Simulated scan of single mutants.
Amino acid sequence: MPTLTRLALAVLVLLAASTAHAASNGSETLLRGLWTEAQLAGTPADRVVTKPWAQPLDNSPPARLTPETTLPPVPADLREVIRRVNPAKGERLVALTFDLCERATNVAGYQNEIVNHLRAQHIPATFFAGGKWMRSHPEKAMQLMADPLFEVGNHAWTHANMAVADDAEARRQVLWTQAQYELLRAELARRAAAKGLSAEMAAVPPVPRLFRLPYGRNAERTLDLLAGLGLPIIQWDVLGEWNDGSGSPQKSAEYAVKRVRPGSIILLHANAVPKNTQLVVPILTRMLAAGGYHFVTVSELLRAGTPETVRSGYFAKPGDNVQYDTLFLGGGTQHPRPTDAKHP
């Protein structure tokens, strides 16, 4: 085969691989084939968050307790808490991550304005969804699963603190969430089949492939437990919702941008609990883009370089999250009752 022909063939192979990779988290055809623009845009009702204990405590499990898909164990270089990545080529890459937390004592929301902005600007992101949150918001969870811009990670069933949960509870929190994702993926596949779009399901991962620690907390044993379940632990090195008391979205964005480095992972929320995140995100993404940063999912970031890890997770400095070991009840799954005079 002539050298030029071989080169052209190699280029075609690389392009094909790149295209397949870009669609590895979903399918635009699937997304647009199952929901209208209005359905994807959502409404203010999506953002409703119920008050703690406004309804009965919900520790009920999903319809299936264990996932059908088993992931291979995490490789040695990904077995600690990953705070950021050092890009091998020095690229200005950054990963936006959004937690979708929900405890046993209330129902969180879905900040559709954030997702609408990301879609409008074609910005990839990683969403770490709690299993109970996915059960409470099945349509939104399936939309995120189907969208090729986004990947969905595991954020525990009811936001349990892995530093205080015993091994049995920690496993339940992880596996119930994997199983709930599978149940929704099965419904997504059913709808896709009804529309003649079954082939598009190949792009939707069978289960989440990443894990985020609730409160950023873990015990030493958590590292082995999650590694055995095949889930790298993804932390962050930049807080995207910093607040000096003024509630200024501009100041939050500026605080984050000053701390971003190539390979940074930024912590944000899309469950409508932080009040100004939907105002921070457009400012933050505009400033990062102006600084030459390229947005990627966490999985893309991991493939681009070497992870920077720690043994124990934290927010901005070691030990700044230990208060969550006693601030919430039930291993972190419950708010204290309104009648409680003080936290335990």
Rank of each mutant, 00 (worst) to 15 (best):
L288Q: 08
A290R: 14
S246H: 04
A304S: 13
R259M: 05
R286I: 00
A304Q: 06
L239K: 02
H294E: 12
G292N: 10
G291Q: 06
K275D: 07
A304N: 06
G305K: 04
E308D: 15
L239I: 04
V238A: 08
R261I: 02
Q235S: 15
V257G: 03
K251Q: 12
S248P: 07
L284Q: 02
P249E: 07
A270F: 00
L239D: 14
Q235F: 01
R303T: 07
V281H: 04
V280M: 04
T285W: 09
V298L: 09
D244F: 00
E308Y: 09
G245S: 09
A289I: 00
E241H: 11
N243T: 03
K258Q: 15
I266L: 11
T309F: 04
S299K: 08
L267R: 10
V238H: 04
V281W: 08
L288H: 02
L279D: 09
E300G: 13
I265Y: 12
G292R: 07
R261D: 02
N276G: 12
S252G: 15
L302K: 09
S252P: 10
Q235R: 05
T297E: 07
A289C: 03
V298G: 03
H294S: 14
S246Q: 08
E254H: 11
K258A: 15
H269D: 03
P249F: 02
G247R: 05
L284Y: 00
S312E: 14
P262I: 05
H294P: 00
S246C: 03
E241C: 00
S264C: 07
V257Y: 04
L284I: 02
L267D: 11
L301Y: 03
N271K: 00
G292V: 07
H294L: 03
D237P: 04
P274V: 00
S252L: 08
G247V: 00
K275M: 08
L268N: 13
R259P: 07
L284T: 02
I283H: 05
V298N: 10
I265F: 12
L279R: 10
I266E: 12
R259F: 05
Y293E: 01
W242P: 08
L288Y: 05
G305C: 03
R311S: 14
V298C: 09
A290Q: 15
P282S: 14
V298T: 10
G305N: 06
W236C: 01
P307N: 13
G292K: 09
V310H: 11
A272T: 02
A289Y: 05
G291T: 03
R286S: 11
L284E: 06
S246T: 14
